[in-house]
Amino acid sequence: MNIYIEALIAFHIILGAFFIFVGSFGMIKLPELMSRLHGPSKATTLGVGGFLVGSMIHFGATEGRISIQEILITFFLFITAPVTAHFIAKAYMHAELKPEKLPKPDGRYGWNTYASVEDVKLAAREQATGSDLQG
């Protein structure tokens, strides 16, 4: 194989390895769960994307065909990583955080995780009628 293509593949693999390492390193270094969420969900996903670009170039150079499965893996990872980060944040807020530590949103209702069912129904009815029900 050409030396430049080999260098390109090696560069992508090293870049991916660096991001995966940094992602997990951030998970053990930072003090709180909400800070620890940032590392794995973003840096690790990008690292796997780097590996996949390297593998696409590798299989394109050796076997001469373009395989789309790597793009599909990256696509699935980019779609599901925010979902898991959001879920973990929400479950942590529900279990550990008290609502007084968070800033309040504009309007009269709090955040969705702490709201009761009556609050949500009242908010929906107020939006539907467009008027102020509680005065």
């Binding site: 995966i20 992602g23 997990s24 998970m27 769960l33 620890r36 969420l37 794995p40 690790t44 996903t45 796997v48 990872l77 990583a81 898991t84 973990i88 479950a91 942590y92 279990a95 550990e96």
Partner: peptide
């Protein structure tokens, strides 16, 4: 906490 362990399992899957 429990969510730390859940996060660790999820990251293990991606690794």
């Amino acid at each position: 906490t429990v969510m730390d362990r859940v996060l660790a399992v999820d990251t293990m899957v991606i690794n």
